[in-house]
Computed example of a mutant assay.
Amino acid sequence: MNEQSRKLRVLINSSIFAAITAILAQFEIPLPLVPISGQTLAVGITATVLGSRQGATAMICYAAIGAVGIPVFAGFSGGLQVLAGPTGGYIVGFIAAAYITGFLLEKTTFTIPMALAANTLGMIIILIFGAVQLKFVAGLGWEGALNAGVYPFIAVGIIKAFLASWIGITIRKRLIQASLLSTSDKKSA
């Protein structure tokens, strides 16, 4: 495959997974400050399938599309005010989580047990980013930020980490078999 085709494939894969994240973001359970949504599931699937650089690129695309006002964030919201608001830290955390989750898988193996470990760490990273911004934007103390932005999401985060691992590894294997994703793609962005 020539370099131009490889770059096009990276762009297409990143765009598809940014779109998947936008779709899953609309599945939500409302809570007082921070809703439970499918966004974090999409982040885990993206990182598990694409790896570090492409996964982070997909999340950068997702955040950028939302930042310009296209309603791709939870509750069909968009705009810089969402990124600067109480839930914006989670969205920024998606980028770091996708990179670190993918990086851990690239340095070990793309298996469900390793993906579960990597996705669990990714969920923790998202919660940390989210709690920090929630604390400062909502004017909460650390205890309030943890009570509103971390503790309610631990159990569902573990479930999402498992689902992202299982779904992501399954999709990754199928895409490789169909020659739509190569194992060398994980090194490119």
Rank of each mutant, 00 (worst) to 15 (best):
179 S>K: 15
59 M>I: 04
41 L>S: 10
93 G>N: 02
186 K>M: 11
185 D>P: 10
148 A>V: 11
167 I>T: 12
184 S>G: 08
78 G>M: 06
138 A>C: 03
148 A>P: 00
101 T>A: 00
136 F>S: 00
171 I>H: 03
182 S>V: 05
25 A>E: 05
163 L>T: 09
59 M>P: 10
106 E>L: 08
10 V>G: 12
32 P>A: 10
17 F>C: 00
57 T>W: 02
8 L>H: 14
149 G>L: 12
125 I>P: 00
154 I>E: 11
94 F>V: 11
173 K>F: 11
87 T>A: 07
19 A>E: 11
83 L>V: 05
52 S>P: 07
139 G>Y: 09
126 I>V: 08
166 W>N: 02
186 K>F: 14
172 R>P: 15
170 T>W: 08
93 G>K: 09
66 G>Q: 02
55 G>F: 14
95 I>D: 07
165 S>F: 07
13 N>L: 11
114 M>H: 12
100 I>E: 04
20 I>F: 14
88 G>C: 03
130 G>Q: 08
18 A>L: 04
10 V>M: 09
176 I>L: 05
43 V>H: 09
127 L>Y: 04
12 I>M: 12
29 I>V: 14
53 R>P: 13
52 S>C: 00
34 V>Y: 01
164 A>Q: 02
101 T>N: 12
1 M>C: 13
187 K>M: 12
65 I>R: 13
24 L>T: 12
117 A>K: 13
9 R>W: 03
132 V>W: 00
68 V>E: 12
36 I>Y: 01
45 I>G: 09
34 V>K: 03
134 L>H: 07
98 A>P: 15
146 L>K: 09
36 I>R: 01
19 A>M: 14
119 N>H: 08
67 A>H: 07
83 L>I: 01
77 S>N: 13
157 G>M: 03
58 A>V: 14
153 F>R: 14
114 M>L: 10
67 A>Y: 07
133 Q>R: 05
159 I>N: 06
98 A>E: 15
27 F>E: 06
150 V>P: 02
75 G>W: 00
159 I>A: 09
165 S>I: 08
61 C>R: 10
54 Q>C: 03
3 E>P: 15
122 G>L: 09
115 A>Q: 06
158 I>L: 11
81 Q>A: 15
